[in-house]
Design a binder for these strands. Structure first.
Lengths: 316, 316
DNA sequence: CAGAATTTTGTAGTCAAACTACACAAATGA
DNA sequence: TCATTTGTGTAGTTTGACTACAAAATTCTG
């Protein structure tokens, strides 16, 4: 279907923005309509053609012409588009303006930043690398995730999705254990090395060893670096910030989404039975959550996290 | 008091969710309408009453009754609400991922899904709750993060940002240690309880104990649950839909972004470094928007960059 | 398993909203 | 100034949204 309905939350989508922007090009009475809408957009969607015309002090056809002028099919279309734009608008009602408004701005900026970055990563992911990674992971008898620091979090996240991968998974977040685990790998095993910078020495070393042992090595990284030379498959989720100075959160988010894609794809590639198993697992989890059963032991790397479940698949 | 601090909107706003949820309560022919809408929501907003009736194989009044049944004023209202929901769910939403899906499509859907959800959360976050949380965290001599399983990852992530919080932070991801840590808290200390479901018993219990000890308790959760009754500040990042396709990842992302917001805001209040960070983010954002998709420069701290850096420390 | 009571659905009709054709008014330019 | 262009409103038409009621289907009861 509309696979290419690529959404960038672009300005063009936001009708309010469009209206404000085309304000100078409008005729005088049309502008009255525009003003009226901008003044209380929320109320405008509720209005009818006649109502809005009256509220703006113009005639009904003028409103229709206005709709056409800003690129709508008609008044109906205008209302729909307006409603759509309004959905993104903040629930402004009680966010007072003042010194505290900084906070709202921070919230908005951080969301924007993360959203923009994800959209960017989406557009720049290499499909072939994903495909190769999925193939390797699907066939792997054993999977190791390597990551230090913030990337260690991603590694653990990946490890928790092991039911989707359908193979024993471990996450190594310690430099030494990473090496030991890498040394234990065999051909067909897969090592996933996660590093935002692509330079972290321990991770690079672990990847090298894993490769020497004949394992398939997959890199999930935020920028090209030494790591890639020891990995046969490179998934580069380049983010807009790659300095270590600001918000490493986005690199984590990107990596986690990549993991999500891999695990989902592997799971789907397997068979329907695998999906049923996941559904069953989710059911068990919901029992655990409500405290009706003893929860499975959880040691930080344990099989299933009681909370939120590893992968989440299969509609009910 | 916690419940008051929260907006009473969210999932109820998402008409698709509402429709899917009230499916069993509908009469047979009304359900035909529902199915038709869910099947192609994008097309449904374009349709007229008669068109939709014909497409569903029912009469026009049935469609109107359907609208009333799901809580709309009439067909017009239905269309507006639908458009509003579609603003978020537009591209993916109810198109479940099946084995037949091409890999590229899976990638796109997962990205879209996560993006839509983040946008949704963004629009529905309660600014007052954020404000209260920032205030509490800024004044806290000690901060504990509680989370199990997938939410444990978020807790660790939060803990790694301790430089931004400017106070000793711990992350407890084990049921028992969680309780012990909670018991050690004192007034003014802050406990942040993270649970997507809001029901995880251990986390709820830890929150209760923390509250009994006089600490300020902050909940970061994906849905209302028992947890809220033991938390004085509730940050509810409700996700777009509950079909559980990818909800776990989405909830983690949302929670991490919330953490990011909190840490940034706290840091901003503390020193000027936080302000620089915001300024930088704004710059990056404007670059993205203007379509100049260059990677930002790497000036700053030189090449080292210990793997991904714990917490996005601002430059000295 | 009738047959009544109730619920569900469609038919026909009404009202109002959305759109169109056209004519008048205002503004612009020679 | 008048002619031409542009802008705006009036009046009329079409269509879509909704309502009243009757037919069909379902359920309930004896």
């Amino acid at each position: 279907m509309a696979t290419e309905a690529v959404r960038t939350t672009a300005v063009e989508d936001n009708l309010l923005e469009v209206i404000a922007r085309s304000l100078p090009d409008l005729r005088r009475s049309e502008r009255r309509v525009a003003d009226r809408i901008l003044q209380a957009p929320q109320a405008a969607v509720e209005m009818t053609l006649g109502t809005l015309a009256a509220a703006s002090g113009v005639s009904e056809p003028t409103v229709i012409r206005f709709a056409a002028a800003i690129g709508c099919e008609g008044f109906r279309d205008l209302r729909v588009k307006l409603a759509r734009s309004l959905a993104f608008a903040r629930t402004t009602s009680h966010s007072a303006i003042g010194p505290a408004d900084d906070l709202g701005e921070i919230t908005g900026k951080i969301f924007d930043f993360n959203l923009s970055n994800l959209a960017w990563v989406r557009a720049h992911l290499d499909p072939d690398a994903i495909r190769a990674a999925v193939a390797a992971l699907s066939a792997a008898p054993r999977i190791e995730f390597f990551g230090l620091g913030a990337s260690g979090i991603v590694a653990i996240d990946a490890q928790q999705k092991f039911p989707l991968f359908g193979a024993p998974c471990s996450a190594q977040t310690d430099g030494h254990q990473m090496l030991m685990a890498a040394a234990m790998l065999a051909p067909d095993d897969v090592a996933v090395a996660i590093s935002n910078t692509g330079t972290t020495v321990d991770v690079v070393r672990a990847a090298r060893i894993a490769q020497e042992k004949g394992a398939t090595t997959i890199a999930i990284t935020g920028s090209r670096g030494p790591l890639l030379s020891h990995c046969s498959i490179a998934i580069v989720a380049e983010t807009l910030e790659n300095t270590d100075l600001f918000t490493p959160t986005v690199s984590r988010l990107s990596a986690m989404v990549v993991i999500d894609i891999l695990s989902t794809a592997v799971s789907l590639g397997r068979n329907r039975a695998g999906q049923d198993r996941i559904a069953e697992m989710k059911r068990l989890l919901s029992d655990v959550r409500s405290g009706r059963q003893e929860r499975p032991d959880f040691n930080g790397k344990g099989p299933t996290g009681p909370e939120d479940g590893p992968g989440g698949m299969a509609p009910e």
